[in-house]
């Protein structure tokens, strides 16, 4: 869908921003370009829609060299989301979303009704359609930016640090919604970020850029955390990569002990009459299930389960079935033993 072949970008001042980049972006997936500032990730992204032109090498979009296409037409076929949203301050929200349909010459009615649908899809009330960008918060502007990128239904989207200007709570929310949208739409997405946590959370494939536009590693997030290709990547993904990696593994094959099995703890699990956990108690002292860690299901990650064992007073996480009935417990020793059997670790 998008292919870089031996692409080099040398700026007039002699700086080599991207050096001999060869990379395939799989169709229908999110490929994250991540790396420290000045690593060439944004320059690479901008070569896809010809905002930057390669000095040598070839960028193919849907099999066609971008340099052989009219830049404006090429760009209208590629959704683009940037950090500051980059909305047109003199146009209303609905007209901002309809920017590309207008440029493509859609009739006004169709462009607007598409824009209104998208407004709802990105989670903004229809009443916002008539507002101007200056009347929206940063997070709301970013949602409009995403809607604008989707308006003409492009198969490809370029996304450049879209969530770095909003606070952590809104960011987490926008990331989750972005993933939900992508599940429905299946676009081919190139996503630039300097935040490795975001890369690992959103990417199907993560391309780690080194200074000067060299690729340090291209891998799935889990593989990146499990097996960094070199010290640079290991350093970049951070020290707690072992814990973070557990976030990618489901607790579905984690062996559990029966709920009534004897434990090395004086804490006793309180169950209600249907077998649902209420909390922990020890010699008249009680801790509710919320403050005492909580419960997990087979759909949770090993990271969640490990965290539960650390916050539970008994050092034990409680598994529940779909009715909320306790059907097993696990402690950290059992999780550690389970991770030891990890196929990836065994392979190395």
């Amino acid at each position: 869908m998008i292919t870089f072949t031996a692409v080099t970008k040398r700026f007039p001042d002699g700086t080599v921003a991207v050096d001999d980049l060869t990379l395939d972006l799989p169709e229908g997936k999110i490929t994250v370009f991540v790396g420290p500032s000045g690593c060439g990730k944004t320059t690479s992204l901008r070569m896809i829609n010809r905002m930057v032109e390669p000095t040598s090498g070839q960028v193919l979009v849907q099999g066609r060299d971008v340099m052989e296409q009219d830049p404006a037409e090429l760009r209208r076929g590629i959704g683009y989301v940037i950090q500051t949203a980059g909305l047109l301050p003199h146009r209303t929200v609905v007209d901002n979303i309809a920017t590309v349909p207008y440029l493509l010459g859609w009739d006004k009615k169709r462009a607007r009704s598409t824009a209104l649908e998208l407004l709802e899809r990105v989670g903004l009330p229809a009443a916002y359609a008539k507002r101007y960008p200056a009347q929206l918060s940063g997070g709301q502007q970013q949602r409009v930016g995403v809607a604008r990128a989707l308006a003409a239904g492009p198969p490809i989207m370029l996304v450049d640090e879209p969530f770095s200007a909003v606070g952590p709570v809104v960011r987490a929310q926008l990331q989750a919604e972005f993933l939900r949208l992508q599940q429905d739409l299946g676009k081919t997405i190139a996503f630039v970020t300097h935040d490795i946590d975001e890369a690992v959370k959103l990417g199907d494939v993560v391309a780690v850029f080194h200074q000067g536009g060299h690729l340090a590693q291209v891998d799935t997030p889990e593989q990146l955390l499990a097996a960094p290709a070199n010290d640079f990547v290991a350093d970049f993904v951070g020290r707690d990569r072992g814990i973070r990696r557990l976030g990618f593994r489901l607790a579905d094959s984690l062996p559990v002990q029966p709920v009534d099995a004897p434990r090395d703890s004086e804490w006793v699990l309180d169950l209600d009459d249907r077998g649902r956990p209420r909390g922990w108690s020890r010699r008249g002292v009680t801790a509710s299930m919320q403050s005492g860690g909580g419960t997990f299901t087979t759909a949770d990650s090993l990271r969640t389960v490990l965290d539960l064992t650390l916050t539970s007073p008994a050092g034990v996480a409680v598994r529940v079935d779909q009715h909320g009935v306790a059907d097993g417990t696990v402690d950290h020793a059992a999780i550690a033993a389970h991770i030891q059997d990890d196929p990836i670790r065994a392979a190395r």
Binding site: N49, M51, A72, E73, R75, R76, Y80, I82, T84, A85, G86, L87, L88, P89, T99, V100, L103, R148, A149
Partner: peptide
């Protein structure tokens, strides 16, 4: 005119 606005407008396909 903020440079970010002209850059974004160019990137979405204005001539």
């Amino acid at each position: 005119v903020p440079p970010a606005v002209t850059a974004a407008a160019t990137a979405v396909g204005f001539r």
